[in-house]
Amino acid sequence: MAYLAMATGFLLILIGFYGALTNRNLLRMIVAFTIADTGVNIVIVAIGYMRGRTAPILDSTVSAAAAVQRIIDPVPQALVLTAIVIGLGVTALMLAYAYKLYEKKRTLDIARFTELKG
């Protein structure tokens, strides 16, 4: 199960990279980056998974004393919580910059932005 989730995550990262490398439309590149982002999150969560254990929340079925034997690793989940939020902020920033670039050049084709070419 963990392997399946992890393989899916890695596959999503590769799909995202492929999309970002081959597409020339800025919006498509942003979408590709978010796909890669999701892949990274899935991989991190999958690393914290342990067979036969439950979510790191104490309740009537998981007592505080038995928690060490019963719960999965909470640290990757806390990390991914952060990563998702920051990912969203970065996506919003990319969209805002894409809008600005479009406003300037009236195109989203990355090949048309040649200012930094030597």
Binding site: P56, I57, L58, D59, A64, A67, I71, P74, Q77, A78, L81
Partner: peptide, 11 residues
């Protein structure tokens, strides 16, 4: 977590 902070959700 349970003893120190009293939170049920460890994350």
């Amino acid at each position: 977590t349970a003893a120190e902070l009293g939170a049920a959700n460890i994350v």
